[in-house]
Design a protein around this nucleic acid. Structure first.
Lengths: 218, 218
DNA sequence: CCGCTAATGTACGAACCGGTACGTTAGTTA
DNA sequence: TAACTAACGTACCGGTTCGTACATTAGCGG
């Protein structure tokens, strides 16, 4: 029947619950990021999978729960990536710049995550609020910045009226906007914020901005 | 029949094409901003109006055209507000700070606009691209910044490797993020970016950041 | 190799929702 | 005041879409 398909495919259509579940979640993430919660179609997700719509309800229960799990997984991945960063060996200013660059790169490399966050905010964060595991006031990124700010402040090179969450916000804002609003911004101002030729410019600009702010007396 | 309604209402249900059209557009703007394009319901818009669904199709043609007009009107209003700003009498640094504050205030006061922009970007700007009137590479905000940057650069107080569009982007990013992502950010980091008690802090921080960046040699 | 259950597939239902056919009324103008 | 048109209302249609009832099969334990 399916002899037309790759016959010696090692992952041939054996039954595999985890695999099926993971595939549905991956496709759903792409679909929700692409069209938003209301724009996404359960049938479309099923069609892009090697299984059927029935399995979505079997494994996830419904469209909403599927979306929530996709959102949760996306956040968990960012969290994991953040944990990789280490700037202990760098001077405060250089370390801040490094963190800004990592955030910059990460946003650019994960547009689907950006889109899911946008979508979730359109829905006023009603789903993320139901995920207590994600509520972590001391995110890896924030912890890193907290230490770093203290180091810089003790050395007398950083201003003292800004905290880690503020700095994280400012960095995220720049990186987020560049990706999330690329379409309207590009249309209105005729500048493609994701033009590879401008990448280094904006990456440097962000570091310059944050460091300039932290090293200037308010 | 409608004697239960305010009997001497001066805007009693006389026929008024412009009024009906404007009312539909206002309700639609709120509904689209509230739920996104796919989440918005034509019936819901009609119900919140003093007229019927039929009139939406009579005046606008369809859901999509209604959304496009709402988006267009929202941009036109921002544009109009930008044109009011005048900073000719201020020193470059103070003028930049003033522009940042105006943008800050405007974003905070117009969350529906922010949400419409987010929604439009989820749809990859496909609708705004069809509105040639909105494509203005020399927006009031950009024109203002262009003059200002030149002034500052001629006086030798501003760096020369940043242009008006970049500065506008940086300012917008900060203001936009604070409003657009208030829900996810607030949930994860436990900080309400729109807390009135933090308003002055963030307003000052934005000005500090932009001025510090412009007045620091790269 | 038998039987039990997890995993999967098919077909369909019911509500929703954008859009429209058709009829009606208000206000204007000759 | 008759006739005409812009403005408005009602009722409904047809496709879409989330969800489910029901049937089936693979693979494992005994």
């Amino acid at each position: 029947m399916n002899a037309t398909r790759a016959p010696s495919d090692p992952s041939e259509r054996r039954r595999d619950a985890e695999r099926t579940r993971a595939e549905i979640l991956a496709v759903a993430t792409a679909e929700f990021a692409d069209r938003g919660y209301d724009g996404a179609r359960v049938d479309e997700i099923a069609d892009r999978t090697r299984t059927t719509k029935r399995m979505i309800y079997y494994y996830f229960g419904g469209k909403r729960q599927l979306y929530v799990e996709a959102l949760e997984q996306a956040y968990a991945r960012i969290r994991a990536a953040e944990q990789e960063v280490n700037v202990d060996h760098l001077e405060p200013a250089a370390a801040i710049r490094r963190i800004a660059e990592v955030t910059f790169d990460h946003h650019e490399a994960n547009p689907d995550f950006i889109r899911l966050v946008s979508i979730e905010n359109i829905h006023r964060g009603e789903h993320i609020a139901q995920l207590p595991d994600l509520i972590d006031l001391n995110t890896p990124a924030v912890r890193l910045l907290t230490d770093l700010l203290r180091r810089g402040q003790e050395q007398g090179v950083f201003r003292t009226d800004v905290d880690a969450v503020d700095v994280h916000m400012a960095i995220s804002a720049f990186c987020f906007f560049r990706v999330a609003n690329q379409y309207t911004f590009g249309t209105i101002f005729g500048r493609d914020l994701l033009d590879p030729g401008l990448r280094e410019h904006y990456r440097t600009m962000l570091g310059d901005m944050v460091v300039a702010h932290l090293t200037t007396v308010g």
